[in-house]
Design a protein around this nucleic acid. Structure first.
Lengths: 203, 203
DNA sequence: CCAATATTTTTACAAATGTTAAAAAATACG
DNA sequence: CGTATTTTTTAACATTTGTAAAAATATTGG
């Protein structure tokens, strides 16, 4: 994808996220710990449209996105609502399955052909009990997600729909080229018609 | 507080959260680890109205609420917006200070006279590097906050103001007696007038 | 108990957002 | 290339929510 490469280069990122890049993103691991976790990793690839994990099922893996973009959505009385996008370097997971072993709240669907690294949750948690570096890595992983989730919550509570849209395109300019506006609208908590109005006002 | 005791009894909780109760809430700790963390704990009490921590300052402690109720709020263009309440058993902290050592986004103010346990963040993080049980305890602490934050975000994105209010009083019935409606309104992401309208419709 | 203050509700109107349906534009694919 | 399908925008109207100000209610402190 040419689009992605230009975007990565502009941010000074590698042109593809290797497993090494992704694991180091949260917490620097000594080699022995990194080897231990790499034992658990499986590489998988799925085509655009594939549903990575499904609501009302306990998901046994977490995924790291090496290439591609995905969305998490939930089935609500008003339709399918996207509440998360993940792209290169992000972790795609069901929080409920990962944290409390419960059924997932959401589907995660691939919006492009994706390369992913997959780790079995049960085995990962066993490592957390054996290796203090990995326990702290796991702590940082959750902290990272918490910061992102809190930012989203604050935006929903403090900001207007227009501000949330502006923030979205400033933070993720090329996502606009990779994701449908209808998905972005529900991610921002507004109808697609509202998003269209906001976009029209900015021209 | 009679109100609190009836509430605690109804939930099968202890009538006051001791440090022991609070520490075990996230993750069961072996005695040696529990002793290590207890070395760091200081008990503090402040009166209603006291500001526990302040926006734009790096907060060096996290607090566990043994007795009392507090709110976190941020100063926004539209006024002071409450975005979190904490009561007995909860952790009161600046995520930004705790996770990334940055300035707090919010004030935390005591809505009642409070008894708190305080832990120095820097010393706590040093323990995370030394004791695998505490590293996992810290992981669970963050996971617990993440689940709560994600639930809030989902409510903001998927639910109407009325549903959020209904959920609020179902989950925290006695908070209605302990917290001003104006604070609850901004917590729910609506104006106080809107909240009044919702309450009027329910009678 | 009373007066002062703070909080909550109500009212009237304005602004924002949602819904439905149709039109326009973009995309996919034979 | 051209048609079918999907996505996005626009329009019209209904509903929700916000703002400002006043009225009602509750709380506080002497």
């Amino acid at each position: 994808m040419l689009v992605n490469e230009a975007y990565f280069a502009a941010k000074g990122w590698p042109s593809m996220f290797t497993l090494d890049n992704i694991l180091d993103r949260f917490y620097p691991l000594p080699d022995t710990s990194k080897n231990a976790i790499m034992q658990l990793v499986e590489e998988v690839s799925y085509p655009k449209g594939h549903v990575l994990l499904t609501a009302d099922k306990v998901e046994r893996h977490i995924y790291f996105i090496s290439k591609g973009i995905v969305r998490a959505y939930a089935d609500t009385p008003t339709g399918l609502v996207t509440f998360w996008f993940g792209a290169e370097g992000d972790v795609a997971l069901s929080m409920k399955s990962y944290i409390s072993g419960e059924k997932s709240y959401e589907d995660i669907e691939l919006l492009e052909d994706c390369n992913l690294y997959r780790i079995n949750i049960e085995k990962l948690k066993a490592l957390y009990q054996q290796d203090i570096h990995l326990a702290n890595w796991g702590r940082k992983l959750t902290e990272y997600e918490l910061v992102r989730t809190e930012e989203r919550l604050i935006a929903m509570q403090f900001k207007t729909a227009e501000e949330r849209y502006t923030d979205f395109i400033n933070k993720n300019p090329e996502w606009l080229l990779r994701v449908q506006l209808g998905h972005i609208a529900s991610y921002l908590g507004i109808s697609q018609v509202s998003l269209s109005r906001i976009r029209a006002a900015r021209r």
